[in-house]
Amino acid sequence: MDDQPQASRHVPIAGVIGWPIAHSRSPILHGHWLKRYGIAGHYIPVPVAPEDLAEVLRAMPRMGFVGANVTIPHKESVLALADVVTDRAALIGAANTLIFRPDGKIHADNTDGYGFIANIRQHQPDWVPDLGPAAVIGAGGAARAVVASLLESGVTELRITNRTRIRAEQIRSEFGAKVVVYDWAEAGNMLDGAMTVVNATSMGMEGKPALRIPLDALAPGTLATDLVYTPLMTPFLEEAQARGCHIVDGLGMLLHQAAPGFERWFGRRPEVDDELRRAVLA
């Protein structure tokens, strides 16, 4: 007869799926929390080629997985494979957090927008969303999450520009009349009067092209934030700070977006603090 305690038979496993996945900092992040709170659980990187995604997703719950984070290139594809999709994931058109329910159903959510706003609130608690227009540079998946969260926070006008204008136009058609599209050539003008400015592109990241947009129109007191966190202090944030803007780096978005998933998988709401930042940066 097996007299092993029930609790030790079901150690929850979560992970992050992507292709490639070796670069992900999520295992460090969740591993830090598991150790800090003394939780018996595991969080591992799971490399999944696009052609294997459906098969792997169906197998993971049977292997003891309680959920997973999702990164490039699977964030859109998982929506079609999920049994339940939250309204915000459907609106954004991507999921970054999966919960494998006891009944075998896959629940898909998107916590990127939550992470974006929580990062701002933590580092600039006096930020007022409706103080003036918001300006978003970029129209990819991350930008869609930012747009959704800014509008939900109460921004009354949201300006957006993208190198491929049609992607910005698509965001306007889906998110409504508060969204105003600017040509890429007019990106500098878009910042005039904006009180919240977001770089939601990968430009300025290590190994990527620089963000070549004139920032002359940035006013002192504007909130400037970058989704890039390698480097932490991007050229965009450096110039914004020099112009008297309040700046928020992109690392906190990564940390905060992870918290809701961790709570669902491991049963504890984790803290996002300086100790966590140091662990992930190390």
Rank of each mutant, 00 (worst) to 15 (best):
D87I: 00
R88Y: 00
L91D: 09
L91V: 10
I92F: 13
A94G: 01
A94C: 04
A95Q: 07
N96T: 11
T97D: 04
R101S: 07
R101P: 05
P102A: 12
D103V: 09
D103K: 07
D103T: 12
G104T: 09
G104I: 08
G104E: 06
H107F: 15
N110V: 05
N110Q: 13
N110T: 08
T111Q: 08
T111W: 08
G113C: 09
G113A: 07
F116G: 03
I117M: 14
A118Y: 10
A118S: 15
N119A: 15
R121L: 14
R121I: 12
H123G: 05
H123P: 01
Q124S: 07
Q124L: 04
Q124F: 02
P129D: 09
P129M: 09
G132A: 05
G140T: 14
A143Y: 08
A143T: 10
A143W: 09
A143C: 10
A143D: 10
R144Q: 14
A145G: 10
V146L: 02
V147G: 04
V147A: 12
A148I: 09
A148F: 01
S149E: 15
L150A: 06
L150D: 11
G154T: 02
V155A: 05
V155G: 03
V155F: 03
L158K: 09
L158Q: 11
L158I: 09
R163G: 08
R165T: 13
R165E: 14
R165V: 15
Q170P: 04
Q170V: 07
Q170G: 03
I171E: 08
I171S: 12
R172H: 15
R172W: 11
E174K: 14
E174T: 15
A177N: 11
A177M: 07
K178G: 02
Y182L: 03
W184E: 08
E186F: 02
G188C: 05
N189W: 00
M190D: 10
M190E: 10
L191R: 09
D192W: 02
G193H: 07
G193P: 06
